[in-house]
Write a protein that binds this DNA or RNA. Structure first.
Length: 424
RNA sequence: GGAGAGGUGGCCGAGUGGUCGAAGGCGCUUGCCUGCUAAGCAAGUGUGGGGGUUACCCCACCGAGGGUUCGAAUCCCUCCCUCUCCGCCA
Protein backbone atom coordinates (compact mmCIF):
# COMPACT_ATOMS: atom_id res chain seq x y z
CA UNK A 1 0.00 0.00 0.00
CA UNK A 2 1.28 3.38 -0.91
CA UNK A 3 1.34 6.24 1.55
CA UNK A 4 -1.57 8.47 0.55
CA UNK A 5 -0.23 11.40 2.54
CA UNK A 6 3.03 11.19 0.65
CA UNK A 7 1.15 11.02 -2.61
CA UNK A 8 -0.82 14.11 -1.65
CA UNK A 9 2.30 16.08 -0.79
CA UNK A 10 4.68 14.75 -3.42
CA UNK A 11 2.72 13.29 -6.31
CA UNK A 12 5.79 13.67 -8.50
CA UNK A 13 7.46 10.83 -6.57
CA UNK A 14 4.74 8.47 -7.70
CA UNK A 15 4.56 9.75 -11.23
CA UNK A 16 8.31 9.28 -11.49
CA UNK A 17 8.06 5.77 -9.99
CA UNK A 18 5.32 4.70 -12.37
CA UNK A 19 7.19 6.08 -15.35
CA UNK A 20 10.29 4.16 -14.32
CA UNK A 21 8.18 1.04 -14.08
CA UNK A 22 6.91 1.64 -17.55
CA UNK A 23 3.37 1.95 -16.17
CA UNK A 24 0.62 4.44 -16.75
CA UNK A 25 0.58 7.49 -14.47
CA UNK A 26 -3.04 8.51 -14.86
CA UNK A 27 -4.02 6.79 -11.63
CA UNK A 28 -2.11 9.46 -9.75
CA UNK A 29 -4.05 12.34 -11.22
CA UNK A 30 -7.29 10.53 -10.68
CA UNK A 31 -6.62 9.74 -7.04
CA UNK A 32 -5.51 13.32 -6.36
CA UNK A 33 -8.73 14.68 -7.77
CA UNK A 34 -10.89 12.34 -5.75
CA UNK A 35 -8.80 12.93 -2.65
CA UNK A 36 -9.26 16.71 -2.85
CA UNK A 37 -13.01 16.23 -2.99
CA UNK A 38 -12.81 13.74 -0.13
CA UNK A 39 -10.98 16.23 2.07
CA UNK A 40 -13.55 18.89 1.34
CA UNK A 41 -16.38 16.61 2.43
CA UNK A 42 -14.41 15.43 5.44
CA UNK A 43 -14.00 18.97 6.69
CA UNK A 44 -17.69 19.64 6.19
CA UNK A 45 -18.62 16.51 8.09
CA UNK A 46 -16.21 17.24 10.91
CA UNK A 47 -17.65 20.70 11.38
CA UNK A 48 -21.22 19.43 11.38
CA UNK A 49 -20.32 16.74 13.87
CA UNK A 50 -18.67 19.27 16.13
CA UNK A 51 -21.85 21.29 16.05
CA UNK A 52 -23.96 18.27 16.84
CA UNK A 53 -21.69 17.28 19.71
CA UNK A 54 -22.16 20.75 21.16
CA UNK A 55 -25.92 20.58 20.86
CA UNK A 56 -25.92 17.19 22.54
CA UNK A 57 -24.12 18.62 25.51
CA UNK A 58 -26.63 21.43 25.67
CA UNK A 59 -29.46 18.89 25.58
CA UNK A 60 -28.01 17.08 28.55
CA UNK A 61 -27.70 20.39 30.36
CA UNK A 62 -31.23 21.50 29.51
CA UNK A 63 -32.61 18.19 30.69
CA UNK A 64 -30.67 18.48 33.94
CA UNK A 65 -32.26 21.88 34.42
CA UNK A 66 -35.67 20.41 33.58
CA UNK A 67 -36.06 22.87 30.72
CA UNK A 68 -38.02 20.47 28.49
CA UNK A 69 -39.00 23.23 26.12
CA UNK A 70 -35.41 24.14 25.33
CA UNK A 71 -34.29 20.53 25.12
CA UNK A 72 -36.97 19.84 22.57
CA UNK A 73 -35.84 22.72 20.41
CA UNK A 74 -32.19 21.67 20.59
CA UNK A 75 -33.06 18.12 19.68
CA UNK A 76 -34.89 19.37 16.60
CA UNK A 77 -31.83 21.26 15.41
CA UNK A 78 -29.54 18.36 16.16
CA UNK A 79 -31.77 16.01 14.20
CA UNK A 80 -31.55 18.16 11.11
CA UNK A 81 -27.77 18.26 11.33
CA UNK A 82 -27.74 14.50 11.70
CA UNK A 83 -29.63 14.11 8.45
CA UNK A 84 -27.24 16.38 6.67
CA UNK A 85 -24.23 14.47 7.99
CA UNK A 86 -25.71 11.23 6.75
CA UNK A 87 -26.13 12.59 3.25
CA UNK A 88 -22.56 13.86 3.01
CA UNK A 89 -21.18 10.71 4.57
CA UNK A 90 -22.67 8.61 1.83
CA UNK A 91 -20.82 10.63 -0.78
CA UNK A 92 -17.65 10.52 1.29
CA UNK A 93 -17.82 6.76 1.58
CA UNK A 94 -18.13 6.39 -2.18
CA UNK A 95 -15.04 8.52 -2.67
CA UNK A 96 -13.18 6.57 -0.03
CA UNK A 97 -13.87 3.32 -1.83
CA UNK A 98 -12.66 4.76 -5.09
CA UNK A 99 -9.48 6.05 -3.47
CA UNK A 100 -8.87 2.64 -1.89
CA UNK A 101 -9.43 0.84 -5.15
CA UNK A 102 -6.92 3.01 -6.94
CA UNK A 103 -4.41 3.04 -4.10
CA UNK A 104 -4.42 -0.74 -3.90
CA UNK A 105 -3.41 -0.88 -7.54
CA UNK A 106 -0.44 1.46 -7.32
CA UNK A 107 2.85 -0.45 -7.01
CA UNK A 108 5.70 0.20 -4.60
CA UNK A 109 8.22 2.95 -5.36
CA UNK A 110 11.48 1.53 -6.73
CA UNK A 111 14.55 2.15 -4.57
CA UNK A 112 16.97 4.79 -5.82
CA UNK A 113 19.71 2.30 -6.64
CA UNK A 114 17.50 0.16 -8.88
CA UNK A 115 18.59 0.38 -12.51
CA UNK A 116 16.01 2.00 -14.76
CA UNK A 117 14.92 -0.21 -17.62
CA UNK A 118 11.90 -1.17 -19.64
CA UNK A 119 11.79 -4.96 -19.15
CA UNK A 120 13.76 -8.05 -18.17
CA UNK A 121 16.28 -7.50 -20.95
CA UNK A 122 17.64 -4.57 -18.99
CA UNK A 123 18.22 -6.37 -15.72
CA UNK A 124 21.78 -6.02 -14.48
CA UNK A 125 24.05 -8.87 -13.54
CA UNK A 126 25.78 -8.27 -10.21
CA UNK A 127 28.00 -11.29 -9.71
CA UNK A 128 28.60 -14.89 -10.73
CA UNK A 129 29.64 -17.87 -8.70
CA UNK A 130 31.06 -21.08 -10.16
CA UNK A 131 31.49 -22.09 -13.76
CA UNK A 132 28.87 -23.82 -15.87
CA UNK A 133 30.06 -27.39 -16.20
CA UNK A 134 31.30 -28.53 -19.58
CA UNK A 135 29.97 -31.98 -20.40
CA UNK A 136 31.95 -34.33 -22.60
CA UNK A 137 28.67 -35.99 -23.53
CA UNK A 138 25.27 -34.63 -24.51
CA UNK A 139 23.58 -33.82 -21.19
CA UNK A 140 19.92 -34.70 -20.92
CA UNK A 141 17.25 -32.30 -19.84
CA UNK A 142 15.52 -33.29 -16.63
CA UNK A 143 12.31 -33.98 -18.51
CA UNK A 144 14.12 -36.81 -20.29
CA UNK A 145 16.45 -37.85 -17.52
CA UNK A 146 13.74 -38.20 -14.88
CA UNK A 147 11.30 -40.32 -16.90
CA UNK A 148 14.21 -42.42 -18.24
CA UNK A 149 15.13 -43.30 -14.67
CA UNK A 150 11.47 -43.94 -13.91
CA UNK A 151 11.60 -41.30 -11.18
CA UNK A 152 9.64 -38.45 -12.80
CA UNK A 153 6.17 -39.02 -14.19
CA UNK A 154 4.50 -36.22 -16.10
CA UNK A 155 1.93 -38.42 -17.82
CA UNK A 156 0.31 -39.81 -14.71
CA UNK A 157 0.51 -36.38 -13.08
CA UNK A 158 -1.49 -35.00 -16.00
CA UNK A 159 -3.99 -37.81 -15.58
CA UNK A 160 -4.63 -36.83 -11.98
CA UNK A 161 -4.24 -33.08 -12.09
CA UNK A 162 -3.65 -31.81 -15.61
CA UNK A 163 -0.72 -29.94 -17.01
CA UNK A 164 2.00 -28.35 -14.90
CA UNK A 165 2.00 -31.10 -12.29
CA UNK A 166 4.61 -33.73 -11.57
CA UNK A 167 4.76 -37.04 -9.76
CA UNK A 168 8.09 -38.10 -8.31
CA UNK A 169 9.06 -41.58 -7.17
CA UNK A 170 11.77 -43.11 -5.06
CA UNK A 171 15.05 -41.25 -4.97
CA UNK A 172 13.65 -38.12 -6.55
CA UNK A 173 10.90 -37.92 -3.99
CA UNK A 174 13.53 -38.46 -1.32
CA UNK A 175 15.77 -35.82 -2.88
CA UNK A 176 12.95 -33.29 -2.72
CA UNK A 177 12.49 -34.07 0.97
CA UNK A 178 16.25 -34.02 1.61
CA UNK A 179 16.57 -30.58 0.04
CA UNK A 180 13.84 -29.15 2.24
CA UNK A 181 15.52 -30.56 5.30
CA UNK A 182 18.94 -29.39 4.20
CA UNK A 183 17.85 -25.84 3.44
CA UNK A 184 15.99 -25.45 6.71
CA UNK A 185 19.00 -26.81 8.60
CA UNK A 186 21.39 -24.34 6.98
CA UNK A 187 19.15 -21.35 7.59
CA UNK A 188 18.32 -22.22 11.17
CA UNK A 189 21.69 -23.55 12.31
CA UNK A 190 24.05 -21.31 10.35
CA UNK A 191 22.07 -18.19 9.50
CA UNK A 192 20.06 -17.71 12.67
CA UNK A 193 16.54 -18.00 11.26
CA UNK A 194 13.58 -19.14 13.30
CA UNK A 195 11.87 -22.07 11.67
CA UNK A 196 8.13 -21.62 11.30
CA UNK A 197 5.48 -24.04 10.25
CA UNK A 198 2.64 -22.15 8.64
CA UNK A 199 -0.91 -22.66 7.37
CA UNK A 200 -1.01 -23.09 3.63
CA UNK A 201 -4.57 -21.87 3.38
CA UNK A 202 -5.10 -18.26 4.35
CA UNK A 203 -7.93 -15.79 4.55
CA UNK A 204 -8.53 -13.21 1.85
CA UNK A 205 -7.22 -10.52 4.21
CA UNK A 206 -3.83 -12.17 4.49
CA UNK A 207 -3.53 -12.07 0.70
CA UNK A 208 -4.52 -8.44 0.69
CA UNK A 209 -2.07 -7.52 3.46
CA UNK A 210 0.83 -8.98 1.54
CA UNK A 211 -0.07 -7.37 -1.77
CA UNK A 212 -1.21 -10.52 -3.59
CA UNK A 213 -4.73 -9.11 -3.86
CA UNK A 214 -6.71 -7.44 -5.29
CA UNK A 215 -4.50 -7.03 -8.36
CA UNK A 216 -3.49 -10.64 -8.84
CA UNK A 217 -6.60 -12.55 -7.90
CA UNK A 218 -6.54 -14.58 -11.09
CA UNK A 219 -3.12 -15.99 -10.18
CA UNK A 220 -4.30 -17.53 -6.94
CA UNK A 221 -6.26 -20.66 -6.13
CA UNK A 222 -9.33 -19.78 -4.11
CA UNK A 223 -11.62 -22.16 -2.24
CA UNK A 224 -15.06 -20.95 -3.12
CA UNK A 225 -16.88 -22.41 -0.12
CA UNK A 226 -14.91 -20.53 2.50
CA UNK A 227 -13.10 -17.91 0.45
CA UNK A 228 -9.73 -19.24 1.57
CA UNK A 229 -6.66 -19.00 -0.65
CA UNK A 230 -3.95 -21.56 -1.24
CA UNK A 231 -0.77 -19.67 -0.56
CA UNK A 232 1.33 -18.75 -3.61
CA UNK A 233 4.33 -18.52 -1.28
CA UNK A 234 5.03 -18.86 2.45
CA UNK A 235 5.83 -15.15 2.34
CA UNK A 236 2.10 -14.61 2.77
CA UNK A 237 1.62 -16.37 6.12
CA UNK A 238 5.07 -15.30 7.36
CA UNK A 239 4.50 -11.60 6.77
CA UNK A 240 0.89 -11.84 7.94
CA UNK A 241 2.11 -13.34 11.22
CA UNK A 242 2.64 -9.91 12.70
CA UNK A 243 -0.22 -8.09 11.00
CA UNK A 244 -1.90 -5.54 13.27
CA UNK A 245 0.91 -5.86 15.78
CA UNK A 246 3.22 -3.36 17.37
CA UNK A 247 6.69 -4.78 17.81
CA UNK A 248 9.49 -3.39 19.90
CA UNK A 249 12.58 -2.26 18.05
CA UNK A 250 14.66 -4.54 20.25
CA UNK A 251 13.15 -7.69 18.76
CA UNK A 252 13.91 -6.60 15.19
CA UNK A 253 14.95 -7.90 12.83
CA UNK A 254 12.79 -11.00 12.98
CA UNK A 255 14.17 -13.65 10.66
CA UNK A 256 11.83 -16.44 9.68
CA UNK A 257 12.23 -19.44 7.47
CA UNK A 258 9.44 -21.79 6.51
CA UNK A 259 8.92 -24.68 4.21
CA UNK A 260 5.63 -24.75 2.37
CA UNK A 261 4.04 -25.95 -0.77
CA UNK A 262 3.16 -23.06 -3.08
CA UNK A 263 0.21 -22.92 -5.41
CA UNK A 264 -0.01 -20.76 -8.49
CA UNK A 265 -2.49 -20.79 -11.32
CA UNK A 266 0.11 -19.42 -13.72
CA UNK A 267 -2.60 -17.58 -15.59
CA UNK A 268 -1.06 -15.76 -18.50
CA UNK A 269 2.08 -17.89 -18.71
CA UNK A 270 0.66 -20.49 -21.06
CA UNK A 271 3.60 -20.60 -23.42
CA UNK A 272 6.32 -20.38 -20.78
CA UNK A 273 8.40 -23.32 -19.57
CA UNK A 274 5.86 -25.86 -20.72
CA UNK A 275 8.28 -28.76 -20.61
CA UNK A 276 9.48 -30.31 -17.41
CA UNK A 277 8.94 -29.19 -13.86
CA UNK A 278 10.27 -25.66 -13.94
CA UNK A 279 6.90 -23.94 -13.83
CA UNK A 280 4.35 -25.93 -11.84
CA UNK A 281 0.99 -25.23 -10.27
CA UNK A 282 2.30 -26.74 -7.06
CA UNK A 283 5.87 -26.61 -5.88
CA UNK A 284 7.88 -26.70 -2.68
CA UNK A 285 9.79 -23.74 -1.41
CA UNK A 286 11.80 -22.82 1.64
CA UNK A 287 11.10 -19.17 2.21
CA UNK A 288 13.03 -16.47 4.06
CA UNK A 289 11.27 -13.46 5.57
CA UNK A 290 12.68 -10.60 7.56
CA UNK A 291 10.68 -8.04 9.49
CA UNK A 292 13.12 -5.23 10.06
CA UNK A 293 13.54 -1.48 10.42
CA UNK A 294 13.70 1.15 7.66
CA UNK A 295 17.27 2.03 8.69
CA UNK A 296 18.67 -1.38 7.99
CA UNK A 297 16.34 -2.94 5.42
CA UNK A 298 18.47 -2.28 2.36
CA UNK A 299 21.52 -3.73 4.08
CA UNK A 300 19.42 -6.65 5.29
CA UNK A 301 18.41 -7.44 1.72
CA UNK A 302 22.09 -8.01 0.94
CA UNK A 303 22.35 -10.45 3.83
CA UNK A 304 19.15 -12.27 2.96
CA UNK A 305 20.36 -12.70 -0.61
CA UNK A 306 23.71 -14.05 0.64
CA UNK A 307 21.83 -16.51 2.86
CA UNK A 308 19.96 -17.84 -0.17
CA UNK A 309 23.13 -17.96 -2.27
CA UNK A 310 24.84 -20.00 0.41
CA UNK A 311 22.59 -22.96 -0.38
CA UNK A 312 23.77 -23.02 -3.99
CA UNK A 313 27.37 -22.68 -2.91
CA UNK A 314 27.06 -25.63 -0.58
CA UNK A 315 25.42 -27.62 -3.37
CA UNK A 316 28.18 -26.42 -5.70
CA UNK A 317 25.77 -25.24 -8.33
CA UNK A 318 26.89 -22.37 -10.55
CA UNK A 319 24.70 -19.29 -10.38
CA UNK A 320 24.55 -15.58 -10.93
CA UNK A 321 22.78 -12.73 -9.18
CA UNK A 322 20.97 -10.03 -11.07
CA UNK A 323 19.20 -6.84 -10.03
CA UNK A 324 15.81 -6.45 -11.58
CA UNK A 325 15.45 -3.18 -13.42
CA UNK A 326 12.49 -0.91 -12.70
CA UNK A 327 10.49 -2.30 -15.61
CA UNK A 328 10.75 -5.88 -14.35
CA UNK A 329 10.26 -5.17 -10.67
CA UNK A 330 7.35 -6.91 -8.94
CA UNK A 331 4.33 -5.00 -7.68
CA UNK A 332 5.26 -5.01 -3.98
CA UNK A 333 9.03 -4.70 -4.35
CA UNK A 334 11.22 -1.62 -4.07
CA UNK A 335 14.26 -3.68 -5.01
CA UNK A 336 14.78 -7.27 -6.06
CA UNK A 337 17.74 -9.56 -6.60
CA UNK A 338 17.08 -12.68 -8.57
CA UNK A 339 19.39 -15.61 -8.12
CA UNK A 340 19.66 -17.70 -11.27
CA UNK A 341 21.08 -21.20 -11.35
CA UNK A 342 22.76 -22.74 -14.37
CA UNK A 343 20.52 -25.22 -16.17
CA UNK A 344 22.07 -27.29 -18.97
CA UNK A 345 18.62 -27.96 -20.48
CA UNK A 346 18.08 -24.24 -21.00
CA UNK A 347 21.75 -23.60 -21.65
CA UNK A 348 21.14 -20.54 -19.51
CA UNK A 349 20.78 -19.25 -15.99
CA UNK A 350 17.26 -19.73 -14.66
CA UNK A 351 15.60 -18.05 -11.70
CA UNK A 352 15.74 -20.11 -8.53
CA UNK A 353 15.25 -17.37 -5.97
CA UNK A 354 13.86 -13.88 -5.85
CA UNK A 355 14.88 -11.69 -2.92
CA UNK A 356 12.99 -8.47 -2.39
CA UNK A 357 12.84 -5.50 -0.13
CA UNK A 358 9.17 -4.50 -0.01
CA UNK A 359 10.01 -1.61 2.34
CA UNK A 360 6.79 -0.51 4.05
CA UNK A 361 4.52 -1.57 1.20
CA UNK A 362 3.33 -4.79 2.83
CA UNK A 363 3.68 -3.62 6.42
CA UNK A 364 1.49 -0.62 5.68
CA UNK A 365 -1.21 -2.94 4.35
CA UNK A 366 -0.73 -5.37 7.24
CA UNK A 367 -0.28 -2.59 9.77
CA UNK A 368 2.97 -3.97 11.18
CA UNK A 369 4.60 -1.28 13.25
CA UNK A 370 7.33 -0.98 15.82
CA UNK A 371 8.04 1.51 18.55
CA UNK A 372 11.29 3.23 17.75
CA UNK A 373 13.96 4.77 19.91
CA UNK A 374 12.02 8.02 19.60
CA UNK A 375 9.14 6.21 21.36
CA UNK A 376 6.99 6.72 18.28
CA UNK A 377 5.35 4.21 15.99
CA UNK A 378 6.78 3.47 12.58
CA UNK A 379 5.97 0.98 9.88
CA UNK A 380 8.44 -1.88 9.81
CA UNK A 381 10.05 -3.04 6.59
CA UNK A 382 9.48 -6.53 5.22
CA UNK A 383 11.89 -8.55 3.11
CA UNK A 384 11.31 -11.89 1.48
CA UNK A 385 13.30 -14.32 -0.57
CA UNK A 386 13.33 -17.92 -1.67
CA UNK A 387 15.91 -19.96 0.07
CA UNK A 388 15.35 -21.75 -2.34
CA UNK A 389 12.68 -23.01 -4.71
CA UNK A 390 13.02 -26.72 -4.03
CA UNK A 391 11.75 -28.19 -7.29
CA UNK A 392 14.05 -26.03 -9.37
CA UNK A 393 16.95 -26.91 -7.10
CA UNK A 394 16.19 -30.57 -7.68
CA UNK A 395 16.18 -29.96 -11.42
CA UNK A 396 19.48 -28.12 -11.18
CA UNK A 397 21.06 -30.99 -9.28
CA UNK A 398 19.93 -33.76 -11.55
CA UNK A 399 20.91 -31.86 -14.68
CA UNK A 400 24.25 -30.58 -13.42
CA UNK A 401 25.27 -33.76 -11.59
CA UNK A 402 24.28 -36.24 -14.29
CA UNK A 403 26.79 -38.79 -15.54
CA UNK A 404 27.21 -40.28 -19.05
CA UNK A 405 25.55 -43.54 -17.93
CA UNK A 406 22.40 -41.69 -16.90
CA UNK A 407 23.15 -41.86 -13.18
CA UNK A 408 23.23 -38.82 -10.93
CA UNK A 409 25.88 -38.04 -8.34
CA UNK A 410 24.52 -36.73 -5.06
CA UNK A 411 26.15 -33.44 -3.94
CA UNK A 412 28.39 -34.06 -0.94
CA UNK A 413 26.33 -32.01 1.50
CA UNK A 414 23.23 -34.03 0.66
CA UNK A 415 24.74 -37.49 1.10
CA UNK A 416 23.92 -37.59 4.83
CA UNK A 417 20.34 -36.67 4.00
CA UNK A 418 20.02 -39.14 1.12
CA UNK A 419 21.95 -42.04 2.57
CA UNK A 420 23.35 -42.76 -0.89
CA UNK A 421 26.04 -41.23 -3.10
CA UNK A 422 24.41 -41.64 -6.46
CA UNK A 423 21.10 -42.29 -8.17
CA UNK A 424 20.20 -44.99 -8.87
C1' G B 1 -22.60 -28.90 12.55
C1' G B 2 -24.97 -27.95 17.91
C1' A B 3 -24.68 -25.31 22.87
C1' G B 4 -22.35 -21.63 25.78
C1' A B 5 -18.64 -17.62 27.09
C1' G B 6 -15.96 -13.68 25.37
C1' G B 7 -13.36 -9.76 22.09
C1' U B 8 -11.83 -2.45 25.73
C1' G B 9 -5.32 1.53 25.10
C1' G B 10 1.91 -1.46 24.38
C1' C B 11 0.00 -5.40 28.05
C1' C B 12 -3.54 -6.78 32.09
C1' G B 13 -8.21 -5.09 33.49
C1' A B 14 -12.80 -1.86 35.23
C1' G B 15 -16.74 0.27 33.00
C1' U B 16 -24.72 -1.14 30.98
C1' G B 17 -27.19 5.64 27.48
C1' G B 18 -24.65 12.12 28.28
C1' U B 19 -18.96 15.41 31.73
C1' C B 20 -15.63 8.06 29.06
C1' G B 21 -10.64 8.66 25.13
C1' A B 22 -12.17 5.67 28.77
C1' A B 23 -10.78 4.05 36.40
C1' G B 24 -6.83 1.05 38.37
C1' G B 25 -2.42 -1.74 37.64
C1' C B 26 1.88 -3.08 34.70
C1' G B 27 5.17 -1.23 31.15
C1' C B 28 7.60 3.00 28.99
C1' U B 29 9.80 8.26 29.16
C1' U B 30 11.67 12.24 32.15
C1' G B 31 13.09 14.39 36.87
C1' C B 32 14.37 13.63 42.12
C1' C B 33 16.57 10.43 45.55
C1' U B 34 19.53 6.14 47.67
C1' G B 35 27.46 4.64 47.86
C1' C B 36 26.21 0.42 42.29
C1' U B 37 21.82 -2.23 37.12
C1' A B 38 17.35 -2.87 42.49
C1' A B 39 13.60 -0.33 45.41
C1' G B 40 11.14 4.53 46.38
C1' C B 41 8.91 9.49 45.09
C1' A B 42 6.86 12.97 41.32
C1' A B 43 5.23 14.15 36.48
C1' G B 44 4.19 12.59 31.64
C1' U B 45 2.62 8.68 28.33
C1' G B 46 -3.14 5.78 22.89
C1' U B 47 -3.96 5.58 17.53
C1' G B 48 -5.72 7.44 12.97
C1' G B 49 -7.71 11.52 10.09
C1' G B 50 -8.88 16.83 8.74
C1' G B 51 -7.61 22.03 9.36
C1' G B 52 -4.06 26.16 10.81
C1' U B 53 2.03 30.08 9.89
C1' U B 54 3.39 28.35 15.54
C1' A B 55 0.75 27.91 20.29
C1' C B 56 -3.41 24.94 18.75
C1' C B 57 -8.49 23.47 17.05
C1' C B 58 -11.83 19.76 15.30
C1' C B 59 -13.43 14.66 14.04
C1' A B 60 -13.21 9.43 14.55
C1' C B 61 -11.82 4.97 17.01
C1' C B 62 -13.56 0.25 23.08
C1' G B 63 -13.33 -6.94 17.10
C1' A B 64 -15.84 -5.29 11.92
C1' G B 65 -20.17 -3.41 9.56
C1' G B 66 -25.12 -1.71 10.02
C1' G B 67 -29.31 0.10 13.19
C1' U B 68 -32.00 2.63 17.39
C1' U B 69 -31.22 7.62 19.71
C1' C B 70 -30.65 14.56 20.05
C1' G B 71 -26.48 11.56 22.06
C1' A B 72 -23.67 4.58 22.02
C1' A B 73 -17.76 1.26 24.72
C1' U B 74 -22.71 0.77 26.98
C1' C B 75 -29.16 -1.06 23.64
C1' C B 76 -30.54 -4.03 18.83
C1' C B 77 -29.05 -6.78 14.20
C1' U B 78 -25.42 -9.14 10.93
C1' C B 79 -20.61 -10.85 10.31
C1' C B 80 -15.54 -12.14 11.87
C1' C B 81 -12.35 -14.08 15.50
C1' U B 82 -10.93 -16.62 20.21
C1' C B 83 -12.11 -20.00 24.16
C1' U B 84 -15.11 -24.21 26.59
C1' C B 85 -18.31 -28.45 25.98
C1' C B 86 -20.85 -31.93 22.51
C1' G B 87 -20.88 -34.20 17.56
C1' C B 88 -17.85 -35.58 13.30
C1' C B 89 -12.96 -36.56 11.73
C1' A B 90 -6.84 -37.08 10.17
Amino acid sequence: MIDIKLLRQNPEIFIEALKKRNASTELVDEILKIDAEWRKLTTEINNLKAERNNLSKLVAKAKAEKDEEKAKELIERSKKIGEEIKKIEEKQKELEEKIMEIALNIPNIPADDVPVGKDETENVEIRRWGEPKKFDFEPKAHWDLGPDLGLLDFERAAKLSGSRFTVMYGYFARLERALIQFMLDVHTKEHGYTEVWVPQLVKREAMLWTGKLPKFEEDAYNTTQDDMFLIPTAEVPLVALHAQEILSEKELPKKYTAYSACFRREAGSYGKDVRGMIRQHQFDKVELVWITTPERSSEDLEQLTRDAERILQLLELPYRVITLCTGDLGFTAAKTYDIEVWLPSYNAYKEISSCSNTTDFQTRRSNIRFRGKDNKLHFAHALNGSGLAVGRTLVAIIENYQNPDGSITIPKVLVPYMGIERIP
